[in-house]
Amino acid sequence: MTATLEETAPAAAAGEIPSFEVTIRVLRYSPESEHGTSSYWDEHTLTMYGTDRVLDALHKIKWEQDGSLTFRRSCAHGICGSDAMRINGRNRLACKTLLKDLNISKPITVEPIKGLPVLKDLVVDMEPFFASYREIMPFLITTGNEPSGERIQSAAQREVYDDTTKCILCAACTSSCPVFWTDGQYFGPAAIVNAHRFIFDSRDEGATQRLEILNDKEGVWRCRTTFNCTEACPRGIEVTKAIQEVKRAMITRAF
């Protein structure tokens, strides 16, 4: 290999994944540290690769530079819902956001999702989020005797609520909602999505109860259709559409 080639293509060996430098700015909060209860920005410059995700960068910081950086993660491929965070101002899953898809010429900012109390660094208190979820009765409600076999449901009936069964409860939608930011009492998109999943299930008989709950002043009518939730959903659920369908059901069905 000639010197010229080496200069122009330093990492050009066949199949080798090109590397690049990237700076990650993380908003930290650690009440036990010398910073006390004020949050602060922390910056790390890292060498990363083309298939690396934001989660890989956070792991690199934690594993090689600063073990105290704290975040939740588990499956690392977008199915467990642990690592929703604000990346460059947008809610995403760190494990589904490839660094190369962001503008790496500028520092990438990583913050905790908004609207839920921050406990440490990127870890927020998820209890209020799950409490709203539990309130909408997220389970099949039926009356009468259980059938001995399966309940019959046509493919078309199942298709009606297919989209909202994809929810992984990551809170990316709810914590992207401006209404939720200013009014923590609002159920938020995720709870409504999960209500939708049952309201439109032909086997379910609890729609009236759920619609009554969501007709509350902190219910669906607070939605201002800003579509933040739909953009934030890492599962591609049409969240705003689901909320609209619940609103329509309220008008046409129950009341």
Partner: peptide, 18 residues
């Protein structure tokens, strides 16, 4: 499988709805 269906699991369906 039937337990899960009765608990609400949204299985894919046959043309007969099974």
């Amino acid at each position: 499988v039937l337990d899960l269906e009765r608990m609400g699991l949204p299985f894919n369906r046959t043309p007969e709805g099974k």
